[in-house]
Amino acid sequence: MKNDEFVRLVNGKPWKNRACTFEGMDCWGLVVLYYRSVMGIELHHLEGYEAGKDFVTCYEGESEFWVNQPVDTAGCIAVFYRGDVPSHIGIMLTPTKCLHSRGESGFVRIDSSLALMKVYSKVEFKRYGQV
């Protein structure tokens, strides 16, 4: 699937806690679907994620598979923090646009990375270790 097709398919879909389907997804589910559908990569996926563990617990178990990069590039992930705690994740479509599934009662949408950086205290950009 091409990047544009994926974006059209998921944009506006409802946020659903611990979901990883095209009918609904949370922020990590969106990343998993993107890498599976667009990049052809099956990400390491912790069992605890579907079991309802919190985002931080799941992220800590997954973060070892990702490599920091100094700038945002298309296809990398953006990890957003509240204080020192990672609390949200999205996919950078361009250096200025982030596709993400935002919180309860939210939906998948594209926002400016600059606008998101105003909501969160810091952001890290990462690429999957095998990419």
Rank of each mutant, 00 (worst) to 15 (best):
G61W: 02
C20F: 00
D26L: 03
Y59Q: 10
P95K: 14
S113E: 11
K122Q: 12
L114V: 12
V67G: 05
Y35D: 00
E104A: 15
M1R: 12
G90V: 09
L30P: 00
F125Q: 01
A51H: 07
S37Q: 14
G40V: 00
M1S: 14
M25G: 07
P70G: 11
W15C: 02
R109P: 03
V38Y: 04
C58R: 00
V123S: 01
V119H: 13
A115T: 14
K2V: 04
F107I: 00
V123H: 01
Y128W: 15
A19Q: 15
K118D: 04
Y34D: 13
G103F: 03
L99S: 04
G75H: 08
E64D: 14
T73E: 12
S105G: 12
N11W: 12
E124T: 02
K97I: 04
P86D: 04
V71D: 15
S63E: 15
M25L: 12
I110F: 00
R109L: 09
G12V: 03
E124R: 11
V119T: 15
L116H: 08
E5N: 10
D4I: 11
G61P: 02
G129C: 06
F125L: 06
L93N: 07
I89A: 02
W28E: 04
C76V: 13
D54F: 06
Q130C: 11
G75W: 07
C20E: 10
D72G: 14
K53Q: 09
I91N: 05
T94C: 11
R36E: 15
Q69D: 10
I41P: 00
T94G: 14
G90K: 01
L99D: 08
G12P: 07
D84F: 04
R109D: 08
W66M: 05
V79P: 04
C76A: 15
L93D: 06
L33T: 02
E5T: 12
E50W: 07
